[in-house]
Amino acid sequence: MKPVLELQQVRKNRTGEDTRPLFMDVSAHITEPAMIALLGVSGQGKSTLLRMLAALDGIDEGSVGLHGVPQSEMDPRAWRMKVCYVAQQPAMLQGSVEQNLRTVSFLHRIPYEEKLVKQLLPRLGLEHLELGKNAELLSGGEKQRISLLRSLLLRPEVLLLDEVTASLDRGSKELVEQVLQEWHTAEGTTMIWVTHDLEQARQISGQVWFMGEGTLLENSATASFFAGPSTETARNYMQGSSSKEQPCLS
């Protein structure tokens, strides 16, 4: 069977005078719909990797394929409709919340799934939201959830989530996790999720990709990663992150 998503020896160079690669030799196969947590300290290029997977940033070397078709041979629009990136900083488009939610329907002239929106809004903790409200006036957390819902309506095969719960309170974060997990089960959507929240990574993912030392250092099942990473760098990262998280857990 052809892999859902395949990364072969992917490399990204830094820009400017620094000639060292940001990362290189990043290879991975996703053979069936999966929930993957992408971990690593800041500056390793996790967001850049997601943007490359979404065809928003160029790949300097190597290739990425979807069901065996390389990104370079596919129309970028068709690719992005299947592999969709949700940014950490949600950008609201001009107009109301509803206009934002109707974006996919408007862009591709497909019916607007109003029923689905009505179902999902309360489940994302947004039942209070007036759809006619100017989207720019929403809070950061509201924007993040609307942006996520806007992308879900595209029904992509692969959803690239860049710290999408970063500005959410604990309750809203748990709601989003639950919705995404159910969506993954029901739709078979693969999700690659950049997060710095180890508890979240442990709960939502079945697989962990750990980026460090300029490459994809570990690619293992979530349970075995959390039982004990095989590299020193990942162990240090886990220790550093858990000591930071301590005050929240107590």
């Binding site: 979404a54 928003l56 970028p76 629009r77 068709a78 992005r80 409709m81 969709c84 990136y85 949700v86 940014a87 949600p90 950008a91 609201m92 488009l93 001009q94 974006t103 996919v104 862009l107 591709h108 942006s147 806007r150 992308s151 595209l154």
Partner: peptide
């Protein structure tokens, strides 16, 4: 804004 629209195809 522009990249959000690109992401949505």
């Amino acid at each position: 804004e522009i990249e959000t629209l690109l992401s949505l195809g």
